[in-house]
Design a protein around this nucleic acid. Structure first.
Lengths: 232, 232
DNA sequence: CTATAATGAGGACATATGTCCTTTCCTTTG
DNA sequence: CAAAGGAAAGGACATATGTCCTCATTATAG
């Protein structure tokens, strides 16, 4: 991680994300710009975390690791998002590992300063509240979705959700194989089974496999299969 | 639902739950005592909700229903807990159905009053934040647990968690069958499969089946199987 | 360019879980 | 007490998913 106290850039990032007034004057003085390389870990499950981060540029991957070493991808996050908010509020060690998928820029604030200058600031508290409530809502949906539907449906939903997200290395409904393993992890199944289900969807004419990727052929069909349920 | 404006009782409930100072003076005037009968629905998925409720007495069951009619129990809640907090913050219709498992007493506040007198009150906001953050954390664990472990492990964990909760109609590690169907729904499997796994645990000598219930025989063994992972 | 290594896809089999139906046992009612 | 009804448990079979291994294809070193 590289850090900088470049308050001009910080201000610019705050503005471009529409959160100029998120941090009050006292807090503004304690903001740090933090830059992470692709693949670098922003925080590691189980370790203490001193900062609350605001993701303002780039993309991160959030995942959890079980004692047995199995890993489960929980989500990909783009700006505007908070990292370390749960840890800040609960005062506990890092819950999930967060890793930079691209180059990533964050604005970091030490928990100590937040406690001192943020915990009686309604604007900041309301912002936190919104973000965390939304996280809860998304997680709630994910849980329901994963427990109630088979992998086929989850994959359909996943394909739809990334079909619209250019930052996923997707082009015109084309999805690169590179991330197929990630996809398996994200929808909570094995790579082997994912392949099986892809075959199935191909046979049904919903998608098509080309060298090193997947092409969405029948958008409407997928939508129907996904139960109108978009991942996240 | 039966309501009352009995401010003496409201004050007593607030005190016994250690939240005398949760609602500021302006809000105090708008608190309503709400009583629900066993089996009564506090709120229904998809319908609008005008109140934020504080559960101060009794026990409720939170569940979701899929478009296909499948139902999944998300949790049982005891005091002190908030109902309708997510809906209040997001300003949306009810996310999950909540039903009274016993006689239930809640303190209700209309969203309108909360917005007016609560959204600039740091004490109230911090409380909300704590509760919702905790909900997120629990849900996060549940998701991980459900996706990463088979029913056998989840059942072990479930049995441990209810073994210590007297309000579940449990006596000395004995668990009544009445709630076996609920249990199946809670851990996200079918009643049939639950039975299968119970048989299995019996064969391994961890639990024992008696007429109309389950008895935990090997507490330590269950713990080991559950991976030290307690439900919720 | 060729041999070798790495990676992705798929086969074979085992296990986990769901659905439907039957059997058993208990409860309730006449 | 006998008959009917209902809840609980379990059997049989189908489906979903996981694990391990093999095969094909592509990338890479020499």
């Amino acid at each position: 991680m590289e850090t900088a106290k470049d308050s001009a850039r910080i201000t610019a990032y705050l503005r471009s994300n529409g959160i100029e007034s998120l941090f009050n004057t006292s807090l503004q003085a304690h903001l740090t710009l933090c830059m992470f390389e692709q693949g670098e870990k922003i925080c590691v499950q189980g370790e203490p975390l001193a900062y609350l981060y605001v993701l303002v540029e780039g993309k991160v991957k959030v995942y959890t690791t079980s004692p047995e070493g199995k890993t489960l991808i929980l989500s990909f996050k783009n700006p505007l998002e908070l990292i370390g908010d749960i840890e800040y509020v609960r005062g506990t060690e890092t819950v999930n590992t967060v890793e930079a998928v691209s180059q990533v820029t964050m604005i970091g604030v030490r928990h100590g300063w937040l406690k001192k200058y943020g915990s009686d600031d309604p604007a900041f508290l309301n912002f936190l509240l919104k973000i965390i409530t939304n996280k809860f809502y998304i997680k709630s949906n994910t849980l329901r979705f994963n427990l109630l539907y088979p992998v086929e449906v989850r994959l359909a939903s996943y394909l739809l959700s990334v079909s619209f997200d250019a930052s996923d290395g997707l082009l015109n409904g084309r999805h690169s194989t590179a991330s197929l393993k990630d996809a398996a992890n994200l929808i909570g199944t094995s790579y082997r089974h994912l392949n099986r289900v892809i075959q199935q969807l191909c046979a049904e004419g919903l998608i098509e496999r080309y060298s090193g990727g997947i092409l969405v052929k029948d958008h409407e069909g997928l939508k129907k299969l996904a139960n109108d349920n978009i991942y996240e």
